[in-house]
Amino acid sequence: MSVDEVGRWPSRFGSRVLRRFVETRELTLLVLIVAIIVGMSLASPVFLSLANFRAIAIGMAPTVIIAVGMTVLLVSGGFDLSVGSVLALASTVTALLLLSGASIPLAILGALALGVIIGLANGIVVTRIGVNPLVATLGSMSIARGIALVLTEGFSLSNLPPAFGWAGRAEILGLPFLLWVALALVVVFDLAMRHGSFFRQLYYIGSNEKAARLSGLAVNRVRTLAYMLSGLLAALAGVLLASRLMSGTPTAGNALELQVLAAAVIGGASLRGGEGTVVGAFLGVIFVALINNAMTMLAVSIYWQMIVTGAVLVLAVALDMLVRRGDG
């Protein structure tokens, strides 16, 4: 072995370790999640209580739902910063429709349709007009949040029909209905991403858009549908949140897009597209939720929680870039 090869060996070894970490991201996350649970159970006797785990499950359910759509979009090579604002707008629109006398199914369908329309608009602006996804979805984030605030003048809308709160209060087999919805979406879309022919196209498009176009794939249509799915699931999360809180809240979901992106990237999705699994994103949401819960238990300021979430996102993206650079 030459001197140069000896000098390069630590770098190659480090790259192999990083690649192995990324390749086994889901297993690694499981280990980290177990480590956090064990550590916090020793630090706080309240952590392992049923009430605490119930609170974690209910709190992270909307994030899981949105993370499913975000993962699909990331795999296709896009991303959506408007999901938190769409959640808030769907929440307020549902409440407004209910207060105006609309039936519960009609109010829910109206909110979901609005989410799909916003996703469609994002998809058209990105794929047809060619606006950068960051700019396009940042704009729709501001527009959706602004509409929610204008419609409500910044106030929450309460006094909703009692029957509407069923989804937020109901339990099945001892678990909140919200969590069952989130878990069902994780299972369905993870299987679809692994075995569905349409969803497999997303990986091809995200990995090499030019090759996908040359092979005859309808890149713009597929990616637009991914944006529509993201908007739909964000709106669904908003409806379920309104049911749990029994109010439409225009300020809900603030900075939620950061948590969702962090969870998806931690779970193995790449901002460059072509990689990621729904199960990985789900584990990423659990990981972030446990960290936030642990900091709350340890009386860490909410502002530090935001810093930690941002730092985790940066570290996850940096890790992904280092691995790709090592592969090159």
Rank of each mutant, 00 (worst) to 15 (best):
F155T: 12
L157H: 02
S158M: 11
P162H: 14
P162K: 15
A163K: 14
F164S: 06
F164E: 00
F164P: 02
G165Y: 03
W166G: 07
W166Y: 11
W166H: 07
W166V: 09
W166Q: 07
A167F: 14
A167R: 05
G168K: 06
E171A: 10
I172T: 04
I172D: 02
I172A: 09
I172L: 15
G174Y: 06
G174I: 03
L175N: 00
F177A: 14
F177Y: 12
L179N: 04
W180N: 05
W180V: 11
W180R: 06
A182W: 00
A182R: 02
A182V: 02
L183K: 02
A184G: 15
V187S: 05
V187W: 05
V188S: 12
F189I: 01
F189R: 00
L191W: 14
A192R: 03
M193L: 11
M193V: 01
M193W: 01
R194N: 05
R194Q: 14
G196I: 02
S197Q: 09
S197V: 07
F198T: 03
F198R: 06
F199C: 08
F199I: 05
Y203L: 06
Y203F: 13
Y204A: 15
I205T: 06
G206K: 07
S207A: 13
N208L: 11
N208D: 13
E209C: 07
K210F: 12
A211F: 13
A212T: 11
R213P: 02
L214Q: 15
L214K: 15
L214E: 15
S215H: 10
G216E: 10
L217W: 07
L217T: 10
A218R: 13
A218H: 15
A218L: 13
V219P: 08
N220Y: 09
N220K: 12
